[in-house]
Design a protein around this nucleic acid. Structure first.
Length: 270
DNA sequence: AACGAATCCTGTGCGC
DNA sequence: TGCGCACAGGATTCGT
């Protein structure tokens, strides 16, 4: 669920609660997320003041003077900020207790998320090979065009490859390709520079609109205050197979690409 | 090198 | 209503 807009929504919701706060304790209940949580993490974070909360790709970086905690939400991870936390449920894997009594609680049924550590001046291997941020100047259609020359892979797969551009997952890849009028199954290497320029604009616009709506809630995702994201109502193609295209009225189709469901309008996308 | 597929987990929703 | 199966928003790793 959590693609760039959901992670950014989480970050924005947490910012006023976390930055400047001192950490009282990190309580770990399970270590076996996607990768094991480093055992020394509670020691590294205790009594430290949170300097900033940044986002790189779909990772959140919670930074103190000792280094940064790297948080990824995987498929089903949710961060909530709680004034009066109840008893933790079976999927509440860790709590970050703050000086003021509030608690940042991480919940993740599938445990595809992670909590890792990055020392100052170092770049974690998971962050090393990431492509440009889609909302930055570095992300352009020309870059996508250059990188895709000779590639036979479907453009949707190409767009979801985090070494080409970060933050775009299954939902926003489908949505952006619809907005750009490009068939998701088309070979990435057979799309013109002009059309990639259109796609880059579509990606940026789609992500920005989704952030404004607080992300997309299909099942699990919630904002830190418990609210769902409202972009679901704005989806053009994702999860709309059989329904009328909002642009031309043709029925939206679904097909498998790279073992993942893709949604598109057969009339508007070529 | 590039691509396809398996993999890590649990929950849900569907068809029978 | 109960059961089994397919599938789910991510992304690394492995085999061809």
């Amino acid at each position: 669920m959590p693609e760039l807009p959901e992670v950014e929504t989480t970050r924005l919701g947490l910012l006023p609660h976390l930055v400047g706060q001192q950490i009282q304790a990190l309580i770990l209940r399970r270590y076996d997320l996607r990768w094991p949580i480093p055992r020394q993490l509670p020691e590294l974070l205790a009594q430290q003041r949170i300097k900033c909360l940044d986002r790189r790709a779909k990772y959140l970086l919670l930074t103190t003077s000792h280094g940064s905690a790297l948080i990824h939400l995987g498929m089903t991870g949710v961060l909530r900020i709680l004034a009066a936390p109840g008893e933790p449920g079976p999927h509440d894997h860790w709590d970050l207790r703050l000086e003021n009594g509030w608690v940042l609680r991480y919940s993740d049924p599938r445990r595809f998320g992670c909590l890792l550590w990055q020392a100052p001046g170092q770049i974690h291997p998971l962050l090393a090979r990431l492509g440009p941020e889609p909302l930055s100047e570095a992300f352009t259609g020309e870059l996508l065009w250059q990188r895709s020359r000779g590639r036979k892979v479907a453009v949707k797969i190409f767009l979801m490859d985090q070494s080409n551009v970060v933050g775009v997952g299954n939902i926003y890849a489908s949505e952006s390709l619809f907005a750009a009028g490009i068939d998701p199954a088309r070979a990435a290497g057979r799309i013109s520079c002009i059309r990639y320029a259109r796609l880059a604009v579509a990606v940026r616009d789609t992500l920005r609109r989704a952030i404004r709506r607080g992300g997309t809630t299909l099942h699990d995702f919630h904002q830190p205050d418990g609210q769902p994201g409202y972009f679901y109502q704005d989806l053009s193609v994702y999860d709309r197979q059989g329904q009328a295209c909002r642009h031309c009225g043709a029925p939206i189709r679904q097909r498998q690409l790279g073992q993942r469901a893709s949604y598109y309008c057969p009339h508007c996308q070529h």
